[in-house]
């Protein structure tokens, strides 16, 4: 280390331990941590996190250990739950499969309807108000009808997920395809493009930012819908599992289950964003 300091005297600031060899991975990690630590926003976030966790832990220990989870408690149960609790993963799978099916079906329908609404004035006049109405309708209000049709079953969960995911995505696709720049339409027109070329070849890619925004809303609503159905109809899944844990005073475990839902929600939106950026490099350069 000393010779390196000698060869690069200008890099050795007073008090600096001196540059470490560039090749070593430990040195790289140390530099990365150093960089993060020097970043003010990282320090702020870390500081806030520590304060909140400490207050949470202390508050619960002082006022009611039986009624709430604590950070240390969660940390204690999480590893074992995540590695050995077959029920947890079973329930997670059941909920997520239905969320995926519902998002897929609802999303595909929403894409078709939304693009059509934005491109065909007559259709927009005819159906627009209903789509807006659907968006405004509280999903819980529809649940009794679905249970009447499908019983206390997984179909009810899928149905409510579709019902929740459809409107925001349809409205996103609708706004997006209505906002397609006249420029693109003119170019298509000048080459004699048919309507189907315009819908699929132009309206869909041009409205992608709107679709992404719609999907963000839709995925949150879909997860909520799945959990709500489980709460109210006792269909097996992660939501009802978390509720059972809570009602049997296993608060720390319940938080682990709920955290999986949150993480899935984040992964859905971030995942879609990252996937698009990776595979559609033009996105963000439109």
């Amino acid at each position: 280390m000393a010779d390196l300091t000698d060869t690069h005297p200008d890099r050795a600031a007073p008090g600096d331990p001196g540059p470490t060899p560039r090749s070593s991975p430990e040195a790289k990690a140390a530099r990365a941590i150093g960089r993060m630590w020097r970043s003010k926003s990282v320090r702020t976030r870390l500081g806030t996190f520590v304060v909140i966790m400490t207050a949470w832990q202390a508050g619960v220990m002082m006022f009611g250990r039986d009624y709430m989870a604590t950070p240390l408690g969660i940390l204690a149960v999480a590893p074992e739950m995540l590695t050995t609790d077959a029920q947890l993963w079973n329930n997670t799978r059941m909920t997520l499969v239905d969320v995926a099916i519902g998002l897929g079906l609802g999303g595909a329908a929403a894409l078709l309807v939304g693009i059509a609404l934005g491109q065909a004035k007559t259709l927009e006049a005819a159906l627009g108000p209903y789509i807006n109405g659907l968006y405004a309708t509280p999903m819980l209000a529809i649940l009794p009808i679905f249970t009447l049709w499908f019983g206390f079953s997984e179909q009810t969960r899928i149905a409510l997920v579709i019902f929740s995911a459809f409107p925001p995505l349809a409205i996103g696709a609708w706004d997006g395809s209505r906002a397609v720049s006249k420029r693109y339409l003119e170019i298509a027109d000048s080459f004699g493009a048919q309507r189907r070329h315009v819908w699929l070849g132009i309206a869909v890619p041009a409205s992608l930012p709107y679709l992404v925004a719609g999907f963000r809303l839709a995925s949150g609503r879909a997860l909520t819908a799945a959990v709500v159905v489980e709460f109210l109809t006792a269909v097996d899944g992660l939501g009802i599992y978390a509720m059972t844990l809570t009602t049997t005073f296993r608060h720390d475990e319940a938080v682990v289950a709920i955290a999986i839902l949150s993480i899935v929600g984040v992964l859905l939106t971030v995942g879609v964003q990252k996937t698009i950026e990776k595979f559609l490099p033009w996105y963000g350069n439109m």
């Binding site: 420029r183 693109y184 170019i187 004699g192 041009a206 559609l280 439109m286």
Partner: peptide
């Protein structure tokens, strides 16, 4: 076109072939 009129989501190949594609 004055502002080139290329589709940002298509590659050069996709843009150049567009007129033939819609035909």
């Amino acid at each position: 076109f004055q502002d080139f009129g290329l589709f940002p989501w298509k590659t050069v190949l996709g843009n150049v072939g567009y007129g033939l594609k819609v035909r």
